[in-house]
Amino acid sequence: MRRFLKENSLSIVFLALFLAALVGQAIAGHADFNDNAVSHGDPTISLGRYVVSSDFGAAVMENWQSEYLQFTLFILLTVWLLQRGSPESKELDKAGRESDQSQKVGPYAQQNSPRWAKLGGIRRTLYENSLVLVMGTFWLGTWLAQSVTGTAQYNAEQLDHQQDPVGWSHYITTADFWESTLQNWQSEFLAVGSMAILAVYLRQRGSPESKPVGAPHGATGVEG
């Protein structure tokens, strides 16, 4: 058990942080929702009702979709794009999908390689791209959920102001949808870009996200 916890501590700690933050968001979001309701002379709702509301759903989904977009793009773009000196980049002569030999697929697969890496055809193509496919599906799924829950949230405000509700296809053309989408995207792109460039010059001893402390600034694709 101790060994399991140690060997999986990164996933376990992040899962615990995620759940704690989600509970915190639900409590704070519920309080904020009811504060707004009181100031508008509307009735308040219970925490249980709030966490299944489109209001909470939209707040959660708009952040999830941007995180999955960030990782989908990062995984995909780092196949071809480089950053000299960054541990987030591949070595400068390795841009592209690389050879079967270096990727250890097909005839170059090792005995302990995943089964689908040893095969050819559609199964290997799927497995070769499985990380982007799954992360990309999560991104599109959560973005769709953001648009659906956002439509309900937007329409609740429309009705509060005695205005007609709008359909989903209209909502995704509104400034409200794109403002909530792009405000999340810009922060993710900034964070990834900052990490790629700061890691050229700065170090964190012991972290695989950093180069070794003594590695030269020009060393690319080296992890500590």
Binding site: S54, W64, F138, G141, T142, A145, V148, T149
Partner: peptide
Amino acid sequence: MPVLCACLFALGLP
């Protein structure tokens, strides 16, 4: 899990 939650919000509530 994200897809499950997305479905809950997107499909379950209507």
